[in-house]
Amino acid sequence: MTNTTTTPLSLATRLRGTPTARPSRDITSAPGLRAQIDDIVASSGLHPTNPLTLRSSSLRSSIRPLESSPLARLRGLLVTTALTLLVHDQHLTDPFEDTMSAWCSNQGEATLLAAFSAADADVQARLRADVRSHVSVLREHLGTFASSWRPQTGVRSVVMLSGGAFVLRDEVDLMVGSVVDANAALSLLDITTAPLGDTADQTLRYHALVQTLRSGVVPLRVALFSTATADCLIRDVDTALLQRAIDDLTTYLSTAAVAA
């Protein structure tokens, strides 16, 4: 199932889909994928003493990011914090102030906070308006995630391959479902404050691959939602999608080898 138009249903509904239509849990694909990556890594000459770490952002590094300033990063983090609060039924009185105070309570370092404090009043006001706008879109389209779906927010993954020569890092904003269900039930959602670009598909494939390698179970579907445009890209995960993710890694590694 593929859809890139404005979301008619809530994200919760679309991520979970129809329980009766779900395929069986696939636990056989992960070892094969791992073996393929091991072969690719072996041919690329990587070694655990000098490991190569890959993130989903590295895959699209050839494209210049629209905004990479500290305040753009802060905006993204605040919208992600808002997602965390909304998924767990926390009412937001003021989307900016509430998410800011919640985010600050979990941080040890204050680089981004210092950047915000140092910014002039106009920039601060713009960020406030930005965050409120993005959270408003998110709140409108998110829907309700029942506790029985086991929603987990800010799920990080670190998958070490070929004895640690190649490391895949990833962070998914929301994961619902379980890997122990008899049917595929795990759905991943990533939120972006930028419009969905050409690399959205690649990002989704990367999330699906890392989750498969981490848990050994192929997820049901992956989704990327833009709070800038309210567009949502959803992909059901199958072997073809995972194979394309492997191709992405192959391309990346060959490019990295040429650059080195």
Binding site: T81, T84, L85, V87, H88, Q90, H91, L92, T93, E97, D98, T99, S101, A102, W103, S105, N106, S147, P151, Q152, T153, G154
Partner: peptide
């Protein structure tokens, strides 16, 4: 309340 909400979220995770 919002920070308490984040505590709820982290603990539920």
């Amino acid at each position: 309340p919002a920070t308490l909400g984040l505590v709820v979220a982290e603990a539920t995770n």
